[in-house]
């Protein structure tokens, strides 16, 4: 009884950690430029494909070099997105920009099929199918790797945002880009950097979940929907919200599919989400906007 409970919570937290990584990308981009990037999930897919399809299968790179190279490639790609997609659209209405990211998502999925073929790829990851025993329960070690990766990323992010000049510039740009620019911060470059960082988070999520399933062109779709749900559950635009929202959503899914029904898992998880929003329309960490005339 306790064992299954521990197992359910750990698996839920690990899956939720992947949601949280993608959700953080949404949040950072939203805070910086008020854009909901619906192609975030496809960056997950792209990260997994670059790592598995090119670096591992084609070049046979060792895993850690593979991870670093992939993150660099995807970081550059993210910066290119800031320049090629966001920049031309910065004055467009919000919904138009969202639809443009949908167009990007469609294009990326199609390009992935062209480049890497329609067959899903397998990826063993660093640990393969190794299992570990914890409190009498058995789970894949990869789940623990995901949790550890989230913890490490959060520590790095905290250090970056709070203790470096670059992080201060990023926070200033997110708070008020116009004022930041007047203070001499090169906001265009900072925004490109934020895009690069958000893309790397998504790509890392892809690299982490790839060993648990296949690498396929539509692997990002479900992940991005759940990550979006996580940002809303936590409170849109809140960084702790994205983190906690992702973890909670992961646990709701894992518990719901074990205790109630795995067939109706989406109905349960998203039903709970709607119910939470009924009572807390601004999410867990969100601030209620007061309206003034």
């Amino acid at each position: 009884m306790l064992q299954t409970f521990v197992q359910i919570v750990l698996v839920g937290l690990a899956v939720g950690a992947a949601y949280a990584l993608v959700a953080l990308g949404y949040t950072l981009i939203w805070n910086a430029v008020s854009l909901v990037n619906f192609a975030q999930g496809d960056l997950v897919m792209l990260g997994a494909f670059v790592s598995v399809g090119w670096l591992a299968n084609r070049l046979g790179m060792p895993l850690w070099l593979n991870l670093v190279t992939m993150l660099v490639i995807l970081g550059l790609f993210g910066a290119a997105l800031a320049w090629g997609i966001y920049h031309p659209l910065r004055n467009a209405p919000q919904l138009s920009a969202i639809v443009a990211t949908l167009g990007l998502s469609m294009a990326l999925q199609n390009i992935a099929v062209i480049v890497w073929g329609p067959q899903p790829l397998n990826f063993a990851g660093p640990l393969g199918t190794t299992s570990v025993h914890l409190f009498g329960s058995t789970i894949y070690a990869q789940y623990l790797v995901i949790l550890a990766a989230l913890a490490v990323m959060m520590a790095i992010q905290h250090g970056l945002f709070q203790h470096t000049a670059l992080g201060r510039a990023m926070r200033a740009t997110a708070q008020d880009a116009e004022a930041a620019r007047l203070m001499g911060i090169p906001t265009a470059r900072i925004i490109a950097f934020i895009f690069a960082y958000a893309t790397m988070l998504a790509a890392l999520a892809g690299w982490l979940v790839a060993p648990l399933s296949y690498v396929s062109s539509d692997m990002g779709v479900n992940l991005s929907l759940r990550a979006f749900a996580a940002t809303i559950l936590g409170g849109f635009g809140s960084i702790p919200g994205a983190l906690v929202g992702g973890l909670i959503f992961g646990v709701i899914e894992s518990a719901g599919s074990f205790y109630i029904s795995s067939e109706y898992i989406d109905v349960i998880a998203f039903g709970v989400l709607i119910a939470v929003l009924m009572f807390r329309p601004q999410g867990i960490f969100g601030e209620l906007e007061l309206e003034r005339p």
Partner: peptide
């Protein structure tokens, strides 16, 4: 053929970039 959805996605982006009002 296999490129058509990629091209279509790019077209959506272009239409929105140049005609934000639709």
């Amino acid at each position: 053929q296999e490129y058509y959805f990629a091209v279509f996605g790019a077209m959506v982006i272009l239409v929105i970039t140049f005609f934000p009002a639709g």
